[in-house]
Structure formats: structure tokens, C-alpha cells
Design a protein around this nucleic acid. Structure first.
Length: 284
DNA sequence: CCTAGAACCTGCGAGC
DNA sequence: TGCTCGCAGGTTCTAG
């Protein structure tokens, strides 16, 4: 389940292995993987051909490959199970290979988009003057972005009439935080997931943001999180951070701070993990 | 306009 | 053995 740290690891891999290479051709093996490319699979493949890839960028969980000398970029989202792999030509196709990009050079490798559940995909979009694909212009900066505005985020929290975990997952307020890191940051900050955002003071917002950054940076240091074999980085190497998780997936296990058994609650078609003692429920 | 909840998708494991 | 069902979850769409 790639979240921001995993996507950044992938971006770095692409920067090393794919940037500055020219596309020879692209092959779409499953149309759903390019469903966000409205003009269709043939158009997607045709438009990539002959263009050189620039330096990959990322915002939140989106990453994109600029096409040099155009105002367009290939936008990628990994969804829940997507992988971008750089593989030797001769290696057998993965079972869930959806898109293949070949290059016009003698390096002997190709870029593959593999995705079991096809929540993710690739698409081609015009870029804004600052190089951002137009369709993700509404996505907020992520907490690891040097230009993320803490005060702006705090003011947005105060205006909302919702609860904190919902806000953390709202990509228009803050991007790159998924279910796992939301639970981790809330546990570290000792905040219950249903605390109303309007009750947040400036110091409490700052503390929560600090914990979100800490847990993401820790994951980044070890190359991302993985819970099963679905996630591997651009070179096919898994990153393992799961042993370091304090909240996510720990139902019934003792809280690492106070020893109280951790709880799980069904929430928005998924789960929230928290310590019932350290993270007190707000008065309702 | 704002917020809450469902839908999308596929493989896996539990239960019958 | 083989079936059904629940679960995983980021984003987008729809309903209220």
C-alpha cells in the first residue's frame, strides 16, 4: 500500500533509471490502467512515442514524468497495489503487467506498470506554468514539501466542521497521508481520530504535523513500508518498515506507551487503530 | 457550498 | 473440496 514515502522511493528510482531516456514505444495491456487518459489507450501510446523523459516529480502520492520540449507529463498513481518496475527486456511479463514502455537506447531495460487491483494508472496531461499536471492542481502540498504552509493548514482545520482523521485524508488540505500514516501520527500525538478539527489549537496542530513528518521521514529512511509482497520499489526491492509501526494493524496488542490493548474501529469502509487510554475519545 | 458515505477492483483467508 | 463473504484502501462520485 504505497503512501508518500513509498512513492518518493519510486520517484528516486525513476530519476536514476528512467530520466533522460527517450521513449521508443508504449504498450497498454489493460485499458483500465489508462482510464484517466480520456483520449484512450492508443492516444496515450502514440503521444509518448519519441519524447525524452525529464526529471520525475512528486506531490503527495502522485508522481509524474515530464516529457521534455512539451508542456505535458505522464502522471502516475499507484493506487493500492501499483508498482513501477524497471526490468530487463528478457524477463517474463508479470501476471498483472498493465503497461510497458520501451526506450530507444541500448540499456536493455524497460519500464513496467504492474497493478493487481488496478486502482492506479498512468495518464498524460498538460502541465501548469509551474510544471504541475493540470488535473492535480487541486491537491494540497504534502507535509514533506518545504513550501507546505503550516499556518494555512491550521486555519483550514479551524474552518472545517469535521473530524481530524477525515481531514488528514483530505488531499485538498494535506496530501500524501493515507490510512496507515494517519493512524501513526495520531497515536504519536495522542489524539483520537474523531476529535473535531475545530477544537485544534495552533500548538496541537503543530505537534500533529511534526509527528506526521517524523513517521514519514522514518519510513523514507528505510525505503518505504511494506505489508505484503505487493509493494516493491522501482528496482523490485521491497522496503520493510512494518515492524516499526506503533498503531496500524496492532489490534489487541499492548500500546507501546502504556500497555493498554490497542483498539480497532470500523470507520469509513476501513479501520482505525488507536490506544483507548492514550487517545481519549472526544465528548460527543 | 459543505459533509458523509458508497463505489470502484481483485486476491486472499476465514468460515461453512 | 469448493463456495461465499469480508477485508484491504485512495480517489472520485453521488446523495443529502
Amino acid at each position: 500500500m504505497p503512501e508518500l514515502p513509498e512513492v518518493e522511493v519510486v520517484r528516486r528510482g525513476l530519476e536514476r533509471w528512467v530520466a533522460q531516456r527517450t521513449v521508443a514505444d508504449a504498450e497498454v495491456l489493460h485499458p483500465r490502467a489508462v482510464r484517466r487518459h480520456v483520449a484512450g489507450a492508443d492516444d496515450f501510446a502514440h503521444r509518448l512515442k519519441g519524447h525524452r523523459i525529464g526529471t520525475p516529480s512528486r506531490r503527495g502520492k502522485y508522481l509524474w514524468l515530464p516529457l521534455e520540449d512539451t508542456h505535458q507529463a505522464v502522471l502516475a498513481h499507484l493506487g493500492m497495489s501499483g508498482q513501477l518496475l524497471v526490468q530487463p527486456h528478457e524477463l517474463a511479463d508479470e501476471k498483472h503487467l498493465r503497461i510497458r514502455v520501451r526506450f530507444a537506447d541500448g540499456l536493455g531495460t524497460e519500464l513496467r506498470f504492474v497493478d493487481q487491483r488496478t486502482f492506479g494508472g498512468l495518464s498524460l496531461h498538460d502541465t501548469t506554468p509551474d510544471g504541475l499536471p493540470d488535473v492535480i492542481a487541486h491537491i494540497a502540498r504534502d507535509p514533506l514539501d518545504p513550501l507546505f504552509d503550516d499556518e494555512l493548514f491550521h486555519q483550514a482545520l479551524r474552518r472545517k466542521r469535521t473530524t481530524i482523521k477525515r481531514a488528514l485524508l483530505d488531499q485538498s488540505l494535506i496530501s500524501g497521508v493515507g490510512n496507515i500514516y494517519a493512524d501513526e501520527a495520531l497515536w504519536r500525538a495522542r489524539v483520537h481520530y474523531e476529535r473535531p478539527t475545530a477544537t485544534f489549537t495552533r500548538p496541537r496542530t503543530a505537534e500533529l504535523l511534526g509527528h506526521a513528518r517524523d513517521v514519514m521521514n522514518a519510513a523514507l529512511d528505510v525505503g518505504g513500508t511494506s505489508f505484503d509482497s505487493l509493494y516493491v520499489n522501482v528496482n523490485g526491492e521491497s522496503g520493510y518498515f512494518d515492524r516499526s509501526l506503533d498503531a496500524y494493524g496492532r489490534e489487541g496488542l499492548p500500546c507501546r506507551r502504556c500497555g493498554t490493548p490497542m483498539s480497532r474501529r470500523a470507520w469509513m469502509n476501513r479501520s482505525s487503530y488507536f490506544c483507548p487510554k492514550c487517545q481519549r475519545a472526544p465528548r460527543s
